[in-house]
């Protein structure tokens, strides 16, 4: 791909204790595009995603080798503050995980701790903007003080997306964001991903091949800790070049 590159992984190995979870991953993620990570359960997709915002730092037994370069800077270098890094990178998890706070405070929390806003008015504006971007505002505008957990699953997921957007990140990582959602809520999130990709670099892990084909421009196929194939999404799903990829996406064994 000839696009601008936002994230570059260079020979990344990840170990959990003695066990190697990722083996020599070299992957370039283009700016303001959606990259889908696919592959069988346990192949290392979430592990790779967590490398990008240094979430693996929080796991004691986890050790990383190689480089992850975001905007020309190695994020594992000693000068990088993981907290600041995470302000640049939003993350949405498989299960919606709103804080036990009001809808408003769920979104306001990040901007407050990262000191993004200067006044209450500005904060309110940002919260509304983020809820609108996440396609949730219309449904919650009259109940911003209700707890986040009082929302439906699909609404909670969009609340988490609003929370991720509120810190105005450059990158959004999504780990199976639609796995617990119905087709309508899924469509709303996919529409949102298309919209967000105009301004953000998105990396999404999904187990739905059709979803990967719909929302992403680049697809990377992982298998047992290795990156088997990466390419334009259209190509990966119509004419993959590796047999392992083809067998996986078409559901074959033997």
């Amino acid at each position: 791909m000839t696009e601008k590159i936002k994230i570059k992984s260079k020979n990344v190995n990840v170990y959990y204790g003695q066990k190697k979870a990722l083996d020599k991953i070299n992957l370039e993620i283009p700016t303001n595009k959606v990259t889908a990570l696919i592959g069988p359960s346990g192949c290392g997709k979430s592990t790779f995603l967590r490398c990008i915002n240094r979430m693996n730092d929080t796991i004691d037994i986890c050790r990383i080798e190689g480089k992850i370069i975001v905007d020309e800077e190695d994020i594992y270098s000693t000068e990088v503050d993981p907290v600041l890094l995470r302000a640049k990178i939003g993350m949405v998890f498989q299960k919606p995980n709103p804080f036990p706070k009001s809808i408003f405070d769920n979104v306001a929390y990040g901007p407050k701790i990262h000191g993004i806003v200067n006044s209450d008015d500005e904060l309110e504006e940002l919260v509304i903007y983020s809820l609108k971007k996440a396609g949730l505002f219309g449904e919650v505008k009259d109940r911003l003080n209700d707890t986040g957990t009082s929302l439906s699953g699909g609404q909670q997921q969009r609340l988490c997306i609003a929370r991720a957007i509120a810190i105005s990140p450059q990158i959004i990582l999504m780990d199976e964001p639609c796995s617990a959602l119905d087709p309508i809520a899924t469509a709303i999130i996919e529409e949102l991903i298309d919209e967000l990709a105009k301004n953000f670099t998105i990396v999404i892990v999904t187990h739905s091949m059709q979803q990967a084909a719909r929302v992403s421009q680049q697809t990377a196929f992982f298998h047992m800790g290795s990156l088997i194939e990466v390419g334009h999404t259209d190509q990966i799903f119509s004419t993959p070049s590796q047999k392992k990829t083809q067998d996986y996406i078409t559901g074959k064994i033997g």
Partner: peptide, 9 residues
């Protein structure tokens, strides 16, 4: 089945 790749072809 929402087939892909060779199946779709």
């Amino acid at each position: 089945r929402q087939p892909l790749a060779d199946d779709l072809r």
